[in-house]
Computed example of a mutant assay.
Amino acid sequence: MHIAVLTLRVALPGCRSLKEKRQRMGGLHERFGRHPSIAVCESGELDRHDASEWSFVVVGTSSRDVASLCSEIEDKLQRTVDGRVLDATREFL
């Protein structure tokens, strides 16, 4: 069993409310949380309007599977979220 924690920090320029922040982040729980190998939560910047931090716990049978899922999450987030990814860190446990 291989496990990684992927943490992404996102800037949301011009975001003026928590409601707008939720709309711009666009349902990450629904998109990624349905996958049986991924757990997702908003892990930081909870009260800031112009930034967000999300953590994903990815589990797989091989390190290659886990790395591939992490890359897929990063790519999809960059394409679908109305914001700019500032930082992405991966920690393999």
Rank of each mutant, 00 (worst) to 15 (best):
K21V: 06
S37N: 14
L28R: 04
A4V: 01
G33Q: 03
R31I: 07
I38W: 01
L28W: 03
R22D: 10
Q23V: 14
M25Q: 10
D50W: 06
M25F: 09
M25Y: 02
M25I: 11
S37I: 00
R22F: 07
P13E: 10
W54Y: 15
R34T: 13
D47R: 06
C15V: 03
S52E: 15
S52C: 11
S17H: 08
E20H: 06
S37L: 12
G44A: 08
W54E: 05
H49S: 04
M25H: 11
P13M: 04
I38M: 03
S52T: 11
A39R: 13
R24M: 05
E45Y: 14
R24E: 04
H35E: 10
P36S: 05
A51C: 11
W54F: 13
E30N: 15
K21S: 11
L28A: 05
V5N: 14
H49G: 00
R48A: 15
S43K: 05
S52K: 00
V40S: 01
V40L: 01
L6T: 04
Q23I: 00
S17R: 13
E42T: 09
R16E: 12
F32A: 02
E30Y: 07
H29A: 14
K19H: 13
R9K: 15
D50S: 14
Q23E: 15
H35G: 09
D47P: 02
G14A: 02
E30A: 14
S37Y: 06
D47K: 04
A4W: 00
G26D: 15
R48H: 12
K21L: 10
D50R: 12
R24I: 02
P36D: 02
A11N: 12
S55R: 04
W54M: 06
R31E: 07
V10T: 12
L18P: 05
G27D: 04
L8Q: 10
E42F: 11
E53L: 10
C15T: 03
A39M: 09
M25D: 04
R48L: 15
K19G: 07
S37C: 13
R24C: 07
E30M: 10
R34E: 06
G27H: 08
V10H: 01
Q23G: 11
P13H: 07
L28Q: 09
R48W: 09
G33V: 01
S55F: 05
V40H: 01
S17N: 09
A51I: 08
L6C: 05
V5G: 00
L6E: 02
P13Y: 07
E42Y: 09
M25S: 08
T7E: 09
G27M: 08
R9W: 14
L12W: 02
H35L: 07
V5E: 11
K19T: 12
L46T: 13
A51N: 09
F32V: 03
S43C: 13
V5Y: 07
F32T: 01
R31N: 05
W54T: 09
I38Q: 01
A4D: 05
E20I: 07
V5S: 08
L6W: 00
L12S: 01
A4K: 06
A39Q: 12
G27P: 06
P36G: 02
A4C: 12
R9A: 14
V5M: 13
A11F: 06
H29Y: 15
R22G: 07
P13R: 00
L18N: 10
S52I: 08
L28F: 03
L8G: 04
C15D: 04
